[in-house]
C-alpha cells in the first residue's frame, strides 16, 4: 500500500481489551501514525466509518446492534480483520451458547437474587439478542484473522507493518496465540 492508509477500528460484543492491547504498541504508535490515519475508532471518537483501507473489528455478534455495526463497517472497509478471540469464535460472550436465551434471562433477572426489581429488561431501545453469539465470519466475509485474548501488541505491529509494506501478513512465533 502506498500513501497514508485509512484505518478504522470498532468493537462488537467485546471488552475493548483488544483495543487496549493495540495501545500497548506504545511509542510504536508514532511511526505508525506517519503511515496511517485513523477513521472510525474509539481512539478518535468518530462514530461512523467512511471508506477505509483496513478495518479492525473486535468482539462477536450477540445482538442486532452488533450486526448493524458490523454490516456498516464491512461495507466501508476494503480489508476486514477479525481481531481477538471474541471476533474469531465468540469468546467469552459465547459461553452463553450452552443455554437457551430465555432461560438464561429468566435465571439472571428473575430467579437469582441481587438485582432488586425482578423483571426482564424490555425497553424497546434494547437491541434484540441472537439465539447464539457468533463470530464475525459467520455473518460477513473476513479477510484476515488476528487471534489472541487479546492479540499482543507485537501481533498488531507485525500484522499492520506487513500490510503497509505490501507483504502477506504472518505472525512471529509467540505473537500467534489463542489466549
Amino acid at each position: 500500500m502506498t500513501g497514508k492508509v485509512k484505518l478504522a477500528t470498532t468493537s462488537l460484543a467485546g471488552c475493548f481489551g483488544c483495543h487496549m492491547s493495540f495501545l500497548d504498541l506504545d511509542e510504536r504508535i508514532l511511526p505508525l501514525l506517519e503511515r496511517v490515519t485513523f477513521d472510525r475508532s474509539p481512539l478518535t471518537d468518530v462514530k461512523h466509518a467512511s471508506a477505509c483501507d483496513v478495518g479492525l473489528i473486535e468482539g462477536g455478534v450477540c445482538n442486532e446492534d452488533n450486526l448493524h455495526v458490523l454490516k456498516e463497517f464491512r461495507d466501508q472497509c476494503r480489508l476486514l480483520v477479525s481481531v481477538g478471540a471474541c471476533a474469531i469464535n465468540g469468546g467469552l460472550p459465547a459461553q452463553r451458547n450452552q443455554f437457551d436465551v430465555s432461560e438464561l434471562l429468566h435465571t439472571v433477572y428473575m430467579a437469582e437474587p441481587g438485582l432488586g426489581r425482578r423483571a426482564l429488561p424490555d425497553d424497546v431501545e434494547l437491541p434484540r439478542l441472537f439465539d447464539k453469539v457468533r463470530p464475525v465470519h459467520e455473518f460477513v466475509r473476513v479477510d484476515y484473522f488476528l487471534p489472541g485474548c487479546p492479540p499482543p501488541a507485537d501481533a498488531f505491529w507485525a500484522f499492520l507493518t506487513a500490510l503497509l509494506d505490501g507483504r502477506e501478513p504472518t505472525l512471529p512465533r509467540g505473537a500467534l496465540r489463542y489466549d
Binding site: G90, A94, N97, Q98, R134, H137, R177, Y178
Partner: peptide, 21 residues
C-alpha cells in the same frame, strides 16, 4: 492449541457447531 498456533491457524474458518456438552 499449540498445534494450531504452530501451523499458523488463525481462525476456525468453518461455522461453529456450539454443541451442548
Amino acid at each position: 492449541q499449540t498445534l494450531g498456533t504452530d501451523l499458523g491457524v488463525t481462525s476456525a474458518g468453518f461455522a461453529h457447531e456450539s454443541p451442548q456438552r
